[in-house]
Simulated assay, not measured.
Amino acid sequence: MPNTYTSAGRRNLLATSADEPFLVLLEIQHPELDDPVRVVNDTVNITARGNEYVACPFELVLPDDVAEQVPKAQLRVDNIGRELTQWLEYSRGGKGAKCRIIHALRSDPDVFEYDMTLDMSGISIDNLAVTADLGFQNTLMLPAVAVRYDPKTTPGAY
């Protein structure tokens, strides 16, 4: 999935030693959350497009762009505080959650250089971290009907 970068973003992306590295912003959305959880992988909070992103360390492996394969990413957020843990318990493991990955420059945080929303699955939590797999649900491989008539489900019809 191609992204269109600004000229400043392209310079930053192609530089071996960038003057200003990209900030990675995350928005975790869930039907039971009033407002999305917004964090930035930095030591200082930032405001982008009118929303405050709270500084929080996390590790993100971006989705790959391999032909004929569903993009997959991995997220690991340090388990600091109880907010994320309480939300996971309240939302029954975060089923149905989505994660929006954003790259922006600190000099112009309102311009999103990279923006992708992925489904969250495989969410697990321990004393040190919350981990999740990010990707798209493969709806093309889901069955079209709830019950299919074949020798296994209806042996008397065959």
Rank of each mutant, 00 (worst) to 15 (best):
Asp78His: 10
Ser91Tyr: 14
Lys72Leu: 08
Ala55Gln: 09
Ser107Arg: 04
Phe112Thr: 00
Asp64Thr: 06
Pro71Gln: 14
Arg92Ile: 11
Ile101Val: 07
Cys99Leu: 14
Ala48Asp: 15
Gln74Ile: 08
Arg76Lys: 15
Phe112Ser: 02
Ile80Ser: 00
Glu89Phe: 13
Ser91Leu: 13
Glu83Lys: 12
Lys95Trp: 13
Pro109Lys: 00
Asp78Leu: 14
Gly94Met: 08
Asp108Gly: 05
Ala104His: 02
Thr85Cys: 01
Val111Trp: 04
Phe58His: 05
Gly93Ser: 12
Ala67Leu: 11
Asp65Ile: 05
Ser107Val: 01
Ala104Tyr: 02
Ala67Gly: 12
His103Pro: 01
Pro57Gly: 08
Glu59Gly: 03
Gln69Cys: 03
Phe58Leu: 04
Glu52Ile: 06
Arg106Lys: 10
Val77Asp: 09
Glu59Val: 07
Arg106Trp: 07
Arg49Val: 05
Cys99Lys: 13
His103Trp: 14
Lys72His: 07
Phe112Asn: 00
Phe112Gly: 03
Cys99Val: 15
Gly96Thr: 07
Glu83Cys: 03
Ala55Trp: 08
Arg92His: 15
Val54Ser: 07
Asp64Met: 05
Ser91Glu: 15
Lys72Phe: 09
Asn79Tyr: 09
Arg76Ser: 15
Val66Asp: 15
Tyr90Phe: 12
Leu60Arg: 05
Phe58Ala: 09
Ala73Pro: 02
Leu62Asp: 12
His103Phe: 12
Ser107Gln: 01
Phe58Arg: 00
Glu113Asn: 06
Lys95Pro: 12
Asp78Glu: 12
Ile101Gly: 02
Asn51Cys: 09
Ala67Trp: 08
Gln86Pro: 05
Asn51Val: 03
Val111Gly: 00
Gly81Leu: 00
Ala55Cys: 07
Ala48Val: 13
Ser107Pro: 05
Asp78Trp: 10
Val61Gln: 02
Asp108Tyr: 06
Gln69Phe: 05
Leu75Asn: 12
Lys72Met: 01
Gly93Cys: 11
Arg82Ser: 04
Tyr90Trp: 09
Ala48Tyr: 13
Cys56Asp: 07
His103Gly: 04
Arg106Met: 01
Ile101Arg: 06
Asp64Tyr: 04
Arg82Leu: 01
Ile101Pro: 07
Ser107Asp: 06
Lys72Asp: 09
Gly96Asn: 05
Asp110His: 12
Phe112Trp: 11
Asp108Glu: 05
Asp110Gln: 09
Glu113Tyr: 04
Tyr53Lys: 00
Leu62Asn: 11
Arg106Thr: 09
Gln69Thr: 10
Lys72Thr: 10
Arg49His: 03
Trp87Cys: 03
